[in-house]
Design a protein around this nucleic acid. Sequence first.
DNA 1: AATGTTTATCGTAATATTGCAATATTGAAA
DNA 2: TTTCAATATTGCAATATTACGATAAACATT
Lengths: 110, 110
Amino acid sequence: MGATKSDHFTQKQNDIAAIAKALAHPARVAILEYLLKVDACICGDIVNELPLAQPTVSQHLKELKTAGIISGNIEGNAICYCIDEKVWEKNRKIFETLFERINKKKTNCC
Amino acid sequence: MGATKSDHFTQKQNDIAAIAKALAHPARVAILEYLLKVDACICGDIVNELPLAQPTVSQHLKELKTAGIISGNIEGNAICYCIDEKVWEKNRKIFETLFERINKKKTNCC
DNA sequence: AATGTTTATCGTAATATTGCAATATTGAAA
DNA sequence: TTTCAATATTGCAATATTACGATAAACATT
Protein backbone atom coordinates (compact mmCIF):
# COMPACT_ATOMS: atom_id res chain seq x y z
CA MET A 1 0.00 0.00 0.00
CA GLY A 2 1.57 3.31 1.02
CA ALA A 3 -1.37 5.48 0.06
CA THR A 4 -3.00 7.36 2.89
CA LYS A 5 -6.63 6.40 3.45
CA SER A 6 -7.83 10.00 3.58
CA ASP A 7 -11.41 9.02 2.71
CA HIS A 8 -11.91 7.61 6.16
CA PHE A 9 -11.05 10.74 8.06
CA THR A 10 -12.82 14.03 8.52
CA GLN A 11 -12.16 17.06 6.34
CA LYS A 12 -10.66 18.83 9.32
CA GLN A 13 -8.30 15.99 10.08
CA ASN A 14 -7.15 15.86 6.47
CA ASP A 15 -6.72 19.63 6.43
CA ILE A 16 -4.55 19.65 9.53
CA ALA A 17 -2.49 16.78 8.15
CA ALA A 18 -2.05 18.61 4.84
CA ILE A 19 -0.76 21.79 6.48
CA ALA A 20 1.52 19.78 8.74
CA LYS A 21 2.82 17.87 5.73
CA ALA A 22 3.81 21.12 4.05
CA LEU A 23 5.84 22.02 7.15
CA ALA A 24 7.24 18.53 7.55
CA HIS A 25 10.56 19.16 5.84
CA PRO A 26 13.37 21.37 7.18
CA ALA A 27 13.96 22.87 3.73
CA ARG A 28 10.38 24.08 3.58
CA VAL A 29 10.59 25.43 7.12
CA ALA A 30 13.79 27.22 6.11
CA ILE A 31 12.10 28.70 3.06
CA LEU A 32 9.23 30.00 5.16
CA GLU A 33 11.55 31.40 7.83
CA TYR A 34 13.51 33.15 5.11
CA LEU A 35 10.36 34.65 3.61
CA LEU A 36 9.30 35.78 7.08
CA LYS A 37 12.70 37.33 7.71
CA VAL A 38 13.32 39.30 4.55
CA ASP A 39 10.23 41.46 5.00
CA ALA A 40 9.80 41.43 1.24
CA CYS A 41 9.49 38.63 -1.21
CA ILE A 42 12.90 38.10 -2.65
CA CYS A 43 12.84 35.31 -5.15
CA GLY A 44 15.64 33.05 -6.35
CA ASP A 45 17.79 34.14 -3.44
CA ILE A 46 16.11 31.24 -1.76
CA VAL A 47 18.20 28.91 -3.87
CA ASN A 48 21.39 30.60 -2.66
CA GLU A 49 20.15 30.50 0.90
CA LEU A 50 19.53 26.76 0.90
CA PRO A 51 22.03 23.91 0.65
CA LEU A 52 20.03 22.29 -2.10
CA ALA A 53 20.11 22.31 -5.88
CA GLN A 54 17.82 24.62 -7.80
CA PRO A 55 15.38 21.94 -9.01
CA THR A 56 15.00 20.64 -5.47
CA VAL A 57 14.21 24.09 -4.14
CA SER A 58 11.78 24.63 -6.98
CA GLN A 59 10.02 21.42 -6.00
CA HIS A 60 9.72 22.46 -2.36
CA LEU A 61 8.38 25.84 -3.45
CA LYS A 62 5.80 24.06 -5.55
CA GLU A 63 4.63 22.04 -2.57
CA LEU A 64 4.27 25.14 -0.44
CA LYS A 65 2.37 26.78 -3.28
CA THR A 66 0.09 23.76 -3.69
CA ALA A 67 -0.62 23.88 0.03
CA GLY A 68 -1.62 27.51 -0.46
CA ILE A 69 0.96 28.80 1.99
CA ILE A 70 2.93 30.87 -0.48
CA SER A 71 2.21 32.49 -3.80
CA GLY A 72 4.48 33.51 -6.64
CA ASN A 73 4.44 36.62 -8.78
CA ILE A 74 6.26 37.00 -12.06
CA GLU A 75 8.59 40.01 -12.05
CA GLY A 76 10.49 40.25 -15.28
CA ASN A 77 12.20 36.93 -15.71
CA ALA A 78 12.41 36.35 -12.00
CA ILE A 79 9.63 35.10 -9.75
CA CYS A 80 8.80 36.68 -6.46
CA TYR A 81 7.53 34.38 -3.77
CA CYS A 82 5.87 35.38 -0.58
CA ILE A 83 3.72 34.05 2.20
CA ASP A 84 -0.04 34.31 1.73
CA GLU A 85 -0.95 36.19 4.87
CA LYS A 86 -4.58 35.14 4.84
CA VAL A 87 -3.75 31.44 4.62
CA TRP A 88 -0.99 31.88 7.18
CA GLU A 89 -3.47 33.41 9.61
CA LYS A 90 -6.01 30.68 8.92
CA ASN A 91 -3.42 27.99 9.56
CA ARG A 92 -2.26 29.75 12.71
CA LYS A 93 -5.78 29.54 14.06
CA ILE A 94 -6.16 25.91 13.09
CA PHE A 95 -3.06 24.93 15.04
CA GLU A 96 -3.93 27.23 17.92
CA THR A 97 -7.33 25.58 18.21
CA LEU A 98 -5.82 22.11 18.10
CA PHE A 99 -3.16 22.82 20.68
CA GLU A 100 -5.51 24.66 23.02
CA ARG A 101 -7.82 21.72 23.38
CA ILE A 102 -5.50 20.22 25.94
CA ASN A 103 -7.00 22.56 28.55
CA LYS A 104 -10.20 20.58 28.61
CA LYS A 105 -8.34 17.52 29.81
CA LYS A 106 -8.69 16.86 33.52
CA THR A 107 -7.50 13.39 34.43
CA ASN A 108 -4.49 11.46 33.32
CA CYS A 109 -3.13 7.95 33.64
CA CYS A 110 0.47 8.44 32.61
CA MET B 1 17.85 9.90 -3.18
CA GLY B 2 14.84 10.35 -0.90
CA ALA B 3 16.75 10.93 2.33
CA THR B 4 16.25 14.34 3.88
CA LYS B 5 19.46 16.37 4.21
CA SER B 6 18.81 17.30 7.83
CA ASP B 7 22.49 18.01 8.47
CA HIS B 8 22.30 21.19 6.49
CA PHE B 9 19.52 22.80 8.44
CA THR B 10 19.35 24.28 11.92
CA GLN B 11 18.27 22.29 14.94
CA LYS B 12 15.17 24.44 15.20
CA GLN B 13 14.20 23.85 11.60
CA ASN B 14 14.63 20.13 12.02
CA ASP B 15 12.63 20.22 15.23
CA ILE B 16 9.72 22.04 13.64
CA ALA B 17 9.79 19.66 10.69
CA ALA B 18 9.81 16.66 13.03
CA ILE B 19 6.77 17.83 14.98
CA ALA B 20 4.96 18.68 11.75
CA LYS B 21 5.81 15.26 10.38
CA ALA B 22 4.19 13.59 13.37
CA LEU B 23 1.01 15.54 12.62
CA ALA B 24 1.24 14.99 8.88
CA HIS B 25 -1.15 12.05 8.70
CA PRO B 26 -4.91 12.21 9.32
CA ALA B 27 -4.79 9.01 11.35
CA ARG B 28 -2.34 10.54 13.78
CA VAL B 29 -4.39 13.72 13.96
CA ALA B 30 -7.43 11.55 14.67
CA ILE B 31 -5.57 9.68 17.42
CA LEU B 32 -4.56 12.95 19.07
CA GLU B 33 -8.04 14.41 18.77
CA TYR B 34 -9.43 11.26 20.37
CA LEU B 35 -6.95 11.44 23.22
CA LEU B 36 -7.84 15.10 23.70
CA LYS B 37 -11.54 14.28 23.72
CA VAL B 38 -11.75 11.35 26.08
CA ASP B 39 -10.29 13.30 28.98
CA ALA B 40 -8.56 10.13 30.09
CA CYS B 41 -6.19 7.81 28.38
CA ILE B 42 -8.24 4.98 27.02
CA CYS B 43 -6.06 2.55 25.20
CA GLY B 44 -6.92 0.07 22.46
CA ASP B 45 -10.23 1.79 21.94
CA ILE B 46 -8.22 3.83 19.50
CA VAL B 47 -8.13 0.81 17.22
CA ASN B 48 -11.93 0.62 17.28
CA GLU B 49 -12.18 4.35 16.71
CA LEU B 50 -10.03 4.34 13.58
CA PRO B 51 -10.75 2.78 10.17
CA LEU B 52 -7.38 1.06 10.16
CA ALA B 53 -6.08 -2.34 11.14
CA GLN B 54 -4.51 -2.85 14.53
CA PRO B 55 -0.89 -3.10 13.31
CA THR B 56 -1.29 0.13 11.38
CA VAL B 57 -2.66 1.96 14.40
CA SER B 58 0.15 0.53 16.49
CA GLN B 59 2.65 1.91 14.01
CA HIS B 60 1.10 5.37 14.10
CA LEU B 61 1.12 5.28 17.90
CA LYS B 62 4.79 4.40 17.79
CA GLU B 63 5.54 7.42 15.63
CA LEU B 64 3.69 9.73 17.97
CA LYS B 65 5.58 8.16 20.86
CA THR B 66 8.92 8.55 19.10
CA ALA B 67 8.08 12.20 18.49
CA GLY B 68 7.50 12.50 22.23
CA ILE B 69 3.93 13.67 21.81
CA ILE B 70 2.30 10.75 23.60
CA SER B 71 3.42 8.24 26.18
CA GLY B 72 2.15 4.78 27.02
CA ASN B 73 1.62 3.15 30.38
CA ILE B 74 1.17 -0.56 30.91
CA GLU B 75 -2.05 -1.36 32.76
CA GLY B 76 -2.46 -5.08 33.13
CA ASN B 77 -2.35 -6.49 29.65
CA ALA B 78 -3.61 -3.29 28.11
CA ILE B 79 -1.62 -0.15 27.42
CA CYS B 80 -2.85 3.29 28.26
CA TYR B 81 -1.80 6.06 25.94
CA CYS B 82 -2.03 9.74 26.61
CA ILE B 83 -0.72 13.07 25.46
CA ASP B 84 2.42 14.32 27.18
CA GLU B 85 1.18 17.69 28.35
CA LYS B 86 4.65 19.17 28.73
CA VAL B 87 5.67 18.29 25.19
CA TRP B 88 2.28 19.40 23.91
CA GLU B 89 2.74 22.80 25.53
CA LYS B 90 6.28 23.07 24.20
CA ASN B 91 5.11 22.27 20.69
CA ARG B 92 2.23 24.72 21.01
CA LYS B 93 4.73 27.47 21.74
CA ILE B 94 7.00 26.46 18.88
CA PHE B 95 4.17 26.74 16.39
CA GLU B 96 2.82 29.90 17.98
CA THR B 97 6.23 31.52 17.67
CA LEU B 98 6.56 30.46 14.06
CA PHE B 99 3.12 31.66 13.05
CA GLU B 100 3.38 34.94 14.93
CA ARG B 101 6.48 36.04 13.07
CA ILE B 102 4.29 37.19 10.21
CA ASN B 103 3.53 40.38 12.17
CA LYS B 104 7.04 41.70 11.58
CA LYS B 105 6.45 41.70 7.85
CA LYS B 106 5.71 45.12 6.41
CA THR B 107 5.94 45.15 2.66
CA ASN B 108 4.71 42.68 0.13
CA CYS B 109 5.01 42.06 -3.59
CA CYS B 110 2.20 39.61 -4.18
C1' DA C 1 -0.67 -25.35 32.10
C1' DA C 2 -3.99 -24.02 28.45
C1' DT C 3 -6.62 -20.32 26.56
C1' DG C 4 -7.97 -15.76 25.48
C1' DT C 5 -6.99 -10.75 25.15
C1' DT C 6 -4.18 -6.95 24.04
C1' DT C 7 -0.47 -4.85 21.84
C1' DA C 8 3.99 -5.04 19.35
C1' DT C 9 6.90 -6.63 15.70
C1' DC C 10 8.14 -8.75 11.26
C1' DG C 11 7.81 -9.16 6.49
C1' DT C 12 6.30 -7.45 2.41
C1' DA C 13 3.79 -4.85 -1.19
C1' DA C 14 2.27 -0.43 -2.88
C1' DT C 15 2.96 4.23 -3.05
C1' DA C 16 5.14 8.76 -1.85
C1' DT C 17 9.02 11.74 -1.05
C1' DT C 18 13.54 13.60 -1.73
C1' DG C 19 17.25 14.99 -4.60
C1' DC C 20 19.55 16.19 -8.71
C1' DA C 21 21.29 16.17 -13.69
C1' DA C 22 19.55 17.30 -17.93
C1' DT C 23 16.56 19.94 -20.37
C1' DA C 24 12.76 23.11 -21.39
C1' DT C 25 10.72 27.59 -20.87
C1' DT C 26 10.34 32.44 -20.40
C1' DG C 27 11.68 37.00 -20.44
C1' DA C 28 15.76 40.42 -20.56
C1' DA C 29 19.66 42.15 -22.66
C1' DA C 30 22.96 42.49 -26.19
C1' DT D 1 17.69 37.30 -33.31
C1' DT D 2 21.20 35.41 -30.44
C1' DT D 3 22.54 35.03 -25.89
C1' DC D 4 22.05 35.11 -21.03
C1' DA D 5 19.68 34.56 -16.64
C1' DA D 6 16.03 32.69 -13.79
C1' DT D 7 12.64 29.01 -12.99
C1' DA D 8 10.13 25.04 -14.07
C1' DT D 9 9.73 20.40 -15.66
C1' DT D 10 11.21 15.72 -16.77
C1' DG D 11 13.24 11.46 -15.71
C1' DC D 12 15.28 8.68 -12.68
C1' DA D 13 17.51 6.61 -8.47
C1' DA D 14 17.45 6.18 -3.51
C1' DT D 15 14.89 6.16 0.44
C1' DA D 16 10.67 6.70 3.37
C1' DT D 17 5.91 5.97 4.43
C1' DT D 18 1.63 3.53 4.70
C1' DA D 19 -0.95 -0.55 5.25
C1' DC D 20 -1.86 -5.11 6.68
C1' DG D 21 -1.51 -10.36 7.34
C1' DA D 22 0.97 -13.33 10.14
C1' DT D 23 3.06 -13.95 14.23
C1' DA D 24 5.17 -13.01 18.68
C1' DA D 25 5.09 -11.32 23.43
C1' DA D 26 2.96 -10.24 27.74
C1' DC D 27 -0.37 -10.73 30.86
C1' DA D 28 -5.02 -12.34 32.73
C1' DT D 29 -8.25 -15.88 33.26
C1' DT D 30 -9.75 -20.37 33.43
